[in-house]
Each structure stands twice: as structure tokens, then as C-alpha cells.
Amino acid sequence: MIAVSHLSKTFAGARARQVLNDVSFDVARGEFVALVGESGIGKSTLLNLIAGLERPDAGQVVVDGVDLAALSDDDATALRRTRIGFVFQSFHVLPYLTVADNVALPLALAGRRDAAAQARVHRMLADVGLDARGASMPRELSGGELQRVAIARALVHAPPLLLADEPTGNLDPDSAAHVIALLRDCVKRNGATALLATHSRTAAAAADRVITLTARGVDVRAAPP
């Protein structure tokens, strides 16, 4: 599903900083993989490169057979719209849209707002246990509930790949465990592949495989520690 080959990325500026140096790994279709490493090591940058939000300085990223470097910005955007879902640490749920409208946003961006799309939204809300909260506003929800909304939004358009950047970073341990379990369950049920950047042991423990990012490169383990 994901093939990363000799990826390098440096952030230019007054003090240039090399964030990634010759990183290579693969993620097979259907895997639930945790990406771990100390803060500032480049986990978020790696996810952004895989999503086509940043361009590498060297190396290659192939997602579902598509070489991202060969895509224009519009094509990369279209790829994200149809084939990738996102879950963020800060949820990024729009406060002035209802829960249901937040979840429906990826479908709307793809031009879909028909009955089938609405049914899909309802099903996703049911999957995350928020089927009764579709008409609620985000401010009425707890942090854990907001992250469940974000998960529903990330999977509503049935993307083959889900990227999650510290999805439990703003949650208490109990909520975090619940969200990770829910995330894994939804991903597996939808037949998607997931790559989670995380500090959380719970998240790493739920993964099929753990990739550790270090200053020297990657350390891939077949099973969680």
C-alpha cells in the first residue's frame, strides 16, 4: 500500500534542519501500523509526505501504486480527497457545523450530497457510537467524542489509507484506549490500511507492526513491544 524509499526532507530557513534522512519502509494493504519516535524526530513530516502535503528533497513515496512526486498539486489534492483519510491530534472539527455535517465534509468535497452519501454519514456515526448526536454542535461534545467524529469523517469516503497524527495526544488514558480500539475496529471493518504517528503505548500495542523512527533511520518490528 505504501512504499517509502530513501526519503529525505530538510526544512529550509535561517537555520536549515534535516528532519528525515534516508528513510525506507513498506506498509502492506490492510495493516494497522504505529509510527513511533521521540518528539521532533519527523513523524508528522513523514505523514505529510505520504499525504502529498509536502514534497521530499530526495527519495520516493508510492501510495497505492501512485508515485506522489509525479503528481501536480491538484492531482495530489484529488488523491487525498478520494483515497486518504486524516485524523489529527487537535481533532480540527469545525465548530460551526453540526456533527453530521462535519462527517459529511469529505463527501461534499467530492461532490456528493445525495441520499446515499447521507446514509453513509449515518452509518459512520453509528459505527463510532454517535448516531444520536448527528444534529449536535461540536461544543456540546467531549474530547473523546470529538475524536470519534474525526474518525468518522476520516473514513466516511471509504479511503484505502488512513493517516492519524497523534490521535490520542489530547485525550485522557481511558478515552485514548477507547478511541484506539474504535479506530482499529473501523479501519479493519472498512478494509483500510492505517499508519498512526503516536507516543502512546496503548496505540502502539494495538498495532500489527511498529515502525520506530530514529535519527539513524527506521527500526521496523513485526510486533508491538
Partner: peptide, 20 residues
């Protein structure tokens, strides 16, 4: 993009602006 989809996208982009 259907009109309904466009309305939601527009609300996502502008929502809150008119109020704030």
C-alpha cells in the same frame, strides 16, 4: 459538485465569519 455539496463546502469555508 452538486448545489447541496457546494453549500456545505461554502459553509465550511465561511461559516462563523459572518457571525464573528
Amino acid at each position: 459538485m452538486t448545489a447541496s455539496a457546494l453549500r456545505l463546502v461554502a459553509r465550511a469555508a465561511f461559516g462563523g465569519t459572518f457571525a464573528r
